[in-house]
């Protein structure tokens, strides 16, 4: 099948000392597909996403691997090529919309700038921007056009960011925890908005989050990351109904259930290790109730590269 985005064997390292932060990550996104990447802080979920657009912070670099977008390898691409793709074919929304918007520039001008900096066939840019603002539920687009970012609440700013990212109808939207800083009722508004726009435009999406609950209702497929590696991949149904990796199982069990039981929460003891400290073992083995000698001396590889896979010697539901 035709992949829109294909990442293979990607690793991200600290440039100074080659310590590995993301290790051997491979996945693909098909046209129109929404993929969620779930992991805790330090799991490498955000770095993997930033690598796609070559936006890694200074001091970090891509150690190895390929990022293919519509067949072109973005890692070897020139800055000019990347610039053409950014904001145009691949757009991104961030956790904190305040830092992603220019505080001293009117919103309208910032949105127009996006159109001006990319070739496009939009005849009436101003009208296109106003339509875009209206589509994301900004109450008075004409007034918003003349406003500055600080005049808006966090939720409204995130809407503006979404409007901005959708202006050029990108094929892929990367969302880095865009609802984490928002209140729950506002988070739900934003999720509803993104779900609607995605369906309407048949756009692909990569949604990064630490909150399993958020992706459950939003994406088609889920990637679970732990200590810099993918530990499990599956459809939403597979991940939530029959998780295979003990980490996924533990994570789901540790969430207080909706049926208001007051039992002890199933907890995962310990803390996640740093990716570079793991070595040749399963990174989760020190916290895993199933771990055996094998897990500590050998690293389980992702079972296969198909749509659903797990990196565990003793996955849940398998006979031992």
């Amino acid at each position: 099948m035709n992949k829109l985005l294909e990442i293979s064997n990607l690793s991200v390292v600290i440039a100074e000392d080659e310590r590995v932060l993301v290790n051997d990550v491979s996945f693909a996104i098909e046209p129109g597909e929404a993929v969620g990447v779930v992991g805790e802080s330090g799991s490498g979920k955000t770095l993997s996403a930033l690598s796609i657009l070559g936006l890694l912070a200074r001091g970090l670099k891509i150690g190895s691997g390929e990022v293919k977008f519509q067949g072109d390898n973005l890692i070897q691409a020139s800055d000019e090529t990347l610039r053409k793709i950014r904001g145009n074919e691949i757009a991104m929304i961030y956790q904190d919309p305040m830092t992603a918007l220019n505080p001293v520039m009117k919103l309208g001008d910032q949105l127009l700038e996006v159109l001006n900096s990319h070739e496009n066939s939009i005849a009436k840019p101003r009208e296109h921007v106003l339509e875009g603002l209206a589509a994301v539920g900004i109450p008075d687009p004409k007034r918003a056009f003349e406003s500055y970012p600080h005049e808006f609440s966090g939720g409204m700013r995130q809407r503006v960011m979404i409007a901005m990212s959708l202006l050029l109808s990108p094929k892929l939207l990367i969302a880095d925890e865009p609802t984490t800083a928002l209140d729950v009722t506002i988070q739900r508004q934003i999720l509803a908005l993104v779900a609607k726009e995605r369906r309407r435009r048949n756009m692909s999406m990569l949604w990064i989050t630490h909150d399993l609950g958020v992706v459950a209702n939003l994406v088609d497929r889920v990637i679970v990351m732990y200590a810099g590696r993918i530990v499990e991949v599956g459809t939403v149904k597979e991940i939530f109904n029959s998780p295979k990796h003990p980490y996924t199982v533990g994570l789901l069990a540790s969430l207080p259930a909706a049926d208001s039981s007051k039992d002890k929460l199933a907890s995962i003891p310990g803390v996640p290790p740093k990716p570079w400290q793991v070595g040749d073992s399963c990174a989760f083995s020190p916290r895993c109730w199933k771990s055996e000698e094998n897990c500590r001396s050998k690293r389980p590889e992702l079972s296969d590269r198909s749509a659903s896979a797990v990196a565990c010697f003793f996955p849940e539901g398998s006979s031992r």
Partner: peptide
């Protein structure tokens, strides 16, 4: 009610209606 509806629920997967969304902001 709106608050309860807004909790991301991992036990209900996909097909959730985003219809009863509380409009407006605080």
């Amino acid at each position: 009610r709106a608050l309860i509806d807004s909790i991301p629920d991992h036990t209900k997967i996909q097909g959730i209606d985003f219809e009863n969304v509380l409009e407006g902001e605080v």
